[in-house]
């Protein structure tokens, strides 16, 4: 079937099998490998993308479900050459270790800060509770999100 949606700000229209998972379409058909598969069951959050601004697991979505929607992947969170504040803060705070979960955390955090520019500690932790990280113990990730939020507020 033909599906049309907005991907990282640009319209896209392709013929795909309706039962193809969004993650496979992104990675295999479009070469957008920044979205990672850690479990394939929506349990680890490594494949998180934004659908109309909401953080969702792309391993649980079929292509047919994104018809007419706005999808943002890790490849689309930067503005031009400028990193998203969450990306920049993650580098600075040491929030990255193995990095496999990192794109998913960036997406969930970006979605949070878009909706709630001044989240408290508890809100930050809840927003990324669906993203598993086995390396960092989350401390520096939470700190990175807090710093990114502060910078985004100062800028706006």
């Amino acid at each position: 079937m033909k599906i049309s949606f907005t991907l990282n700000g640009k319209p896209i229209s392709r013929d795909v099998a309706p039962d193809k998972r969004l993650i496979d379409f992104l990675r295999e058909d479009l070469g957008l490998i920044g979205t990672k598969e850690g479990c394939g069951k929506g349990e680890c959050g490594s494949c998180t993308v934004l659908m109309d601004g909401e953080a969702v697991c792309s391993c649980l979505l079929l292509c047919a479900q994104v018809q007419g929607r706005h999808i943002t992947t890790i490849e689309g969170v930067q503005s031009g050459n400028e990193l998203h504040p969450v990306q920049q803060a993650f580098i600075e705070t040491g929030a990255v270790q193995c990095g496999f979960c990192t794109p998913g955390f960036v997406m969930s955090s970006a979605a949070l800060l878009e909706k709630n520019p001044e989240p408290n500690e508890d809100e930050i932790r809840r927003a990324v509770a669906g993203n598993l990280c086995r390396c960092t113990g989350y401390s520096k990730i939470v700190k990175g999100i807090r710093i990114a939020g502060k910078r985004m507020r100062e800028k706006s």
Binding site: T35, E75, I91, G99
Partner: peptide, 9 residues
Amino acid sequence: DALAKVCGT
């Protein structure tokens, strides 16, 4: 390696 990892590249 942090830059490439936060960018998903």
